[in-house]
Design a protein around this nucleic acid. Structure first.
Lengths: 338, 338
DNA sequence: CCCTGGCGTTGAAGCGCTTCGACACCCTCT
DNA sequence: AGAGGGTGTCGAAGCGCTTCAACGCCAGGG
């Protein structure tokens, strides 16, 4: 294994000079720099991460806590994770993958051991049990998702309240007066996941403002579940002509069942989805949708974390990404509307 | 920040004693151990990861290289990644997430810097450009997937050749004489991804043995693509009654299109899928399928890596998991068969 | 009663790097 | 010409931990 000292000897300089060439923290004359760089290449030198971390008390690692549950909105999670990893690399950081399994213990371990310089936490619940620990931690933290109380926290999320409002508005504009919301699985609401509740709130408020009736039903992402949910919706509100779907696994079942019942999309019923763009464009009907900007969220989270590490970011900062509704082929005027 | 030295002082012992209590590498009397453990708890001590790595030249980190492409078999990837992370934790390791983006450079970086003790590489191509580097690396490596040449390598994978054979056999047993294979996207074959080619080989060979005609068509995971593919299949082989689908994103489009064309599953055509169990059971028809044991693969990979680190594993070892076909509602006797 | 050998504990020497203060040198200004 | 201020380089002191050799102690055997 090649060490910095060997590089220094090879280049005929001191160890500190090599270190400064590497870090750029002091000016080095061009000829010296070149000599050192040449030696580095020739010897195939790679700085030892442990030694570096010890001496500088910086690990250049970002910890990413992903939820353990692999049954929900997985593609979004994965997309965020990959965006985090790539963005982190472009800032010189590596990413440590922590699963929710350990729960708060993971926070303590990473925080205490100096394994990571900062943490990015996904799938934050409204009253997340990790929050107190994160507050107490030395490490900067960025949340993807919004807890109930954001005092002193840095958060990134899609503005789900606005998203809900936007969906309600779009359908109302098209003349729909009875809207059904196909929500996430019941478990999601039981965990008080922020985004689900916020979406609902946005939907409800705007619907109320616009005089539209709204019915919300949680739904698992399977055909059986969607079948039952759909029957119940039409039983209770036969006049339903608009759907907002938040559970991406329920989208295809919904479309399929509507087709089977002879309800045409968008002639008889309109469907608006909240899902990644790819899902919307690849579904059996090109879906009017609000995209979940997974990549953007991952990227922003990393950038905020890096900024906090550099000391150039405020302690408290909530970044809400504005939702954008893309009108595609699944929504149209309500039946009987000119 | 609490250091080992402070714990030692607090417990009235030397630093080395504390270290030995922590590592268990030397016997320590019960009273001393208890005193030390008590101090650790009281002071809230966590060993510094960098210092530990430097002194022991062990980071207790496993690197996981995931493919960058977020468009393919994402749930499987995620499931593997999470299984890797949890299994790793249970062995005292953390997981560093590397994306394919950096390619071979990532291998060199991690290898050179001692950031990780071992590597787990997913999505291996037949002639993967990372292989030479992995061979040269000090670190033990485990591949998830099979390259063309496995000499000196440790690999874990589903036995895709057997999987293909199993699918062909199942359909042949049911009397199907013309089978179509809906493959992965063309890009997957262009990259010479092992599992896709092996599956095909297994299918072809067994089909030939059993006197069944086989038609293979790559297919993207969208409705448009599936629509085109399906038309072409029935144009070329109007007598097709059996389908094997490998691209999980194409499953729902296929079922949907068959329905629309008035072909009943399983009365008119049978469908066998190669996909995670969850996809098979939650599709619009409960699918006869061969499961992709993502969790098992992740778990095995970690266990092999840990064994190699402990020196208790052979250099070369190819673990092929036996496929299991679960018969569900999407396959039945070919039309006209008693 | 002394020697031997295991057991429990310690001190000290690094692991490979960063960083601080010091220093030599050269240029510029007065 | 001498003072002053950059600029480029170096030496040395750690960062917090592991681990090796060594040592004191007590029990058992000769």
């Amino acid at each position: 294994m090649v060490t910095l000292a060997e590089v220094a000897r090879h280049a005929g300089v001191s160890a500190s000079t090599v270190s400064y060439v590497l870090s750029g923290k002091r000016s080095i004359s061009a000829p010296t720099r070149e000599r050192v760089e040449h030696s580095i290449k020739e010897l195939g030198y790679h700085p030892n991460a442990g030694a570096r971390a010890l001496a500088s008390s910086r690990s250049n690692i970002l910890a990413l806590m992903v939820p353990l549950r692999t049954d929900m909105y997985v593609p979004v999670m994965m997309e965020i994770a990959i965006a985090v990893a790539t963005t982190a690399r472009s800032h010189g950081y590596d990413v440590l993958l922590l699963t929710g399994e350990e729960g708060p213990a993971a926070v303590r371990r990473v925080t205490g051991s100096g394994l990571a310089d900062a943490m990015i936490v996904m799938d934050v619940e409204l009253e997340d049990e990790r929050l107190p620990l994160l507050h107490a931690a030395r490490q900067p933290t960025v949340l993807i998702g919004l807890p109930a109380d954001t005092v002193g926290l840095t958060c990134v999320d899609l503005d789900f309240t606005a998203t809900g409002a936007l969906c309600a508005e779009h359908l109302a504009d098209l003349g729909h007066r009875e809207i059904a919301v196909v929500g996430e699985a019941p478990a999601v609401y039981e965990r008080h996941t922020g985004f689900a509740e916020r979406t609902l709130e946005g939907l409800r408020r705007r619907a109320a403002d616009l005089g539209v009736r709204l019915l919300h039903r949680p739904c698992e992402g399977s055909y059986e579940s969607m079948d039952g949910t759909l029957s119940r919706i039409f039983d209770e509100r036969p006049g339903t002509t608009g759907f907002v779907v938040q559970n991406e696994a329920a989208i295809e079942p919904l479309l399929s069942l509507l087709r089977r019942q002879g309800r045409a999309v968008p002639e008889d019923v309109s469907v608006v989805a909240i899902c990644p763009e790819q899902v919307a464009t690849q579904a059996s009907v090109r879906l009017t949708s609000v995209a979940i900007p997974a990549q953007e969220m991952g990227r922003r989270a990393v950038e905020l974390a890096v900024a906090k590490l550099a000391g150039g970011a405020p302690e408290e900062q909530v970044t809400l990404l504005a939702p954008e509704l893309a009108v595609r082929a699944s929504s149209g005027p309500a039946p009987g509307t000119p």
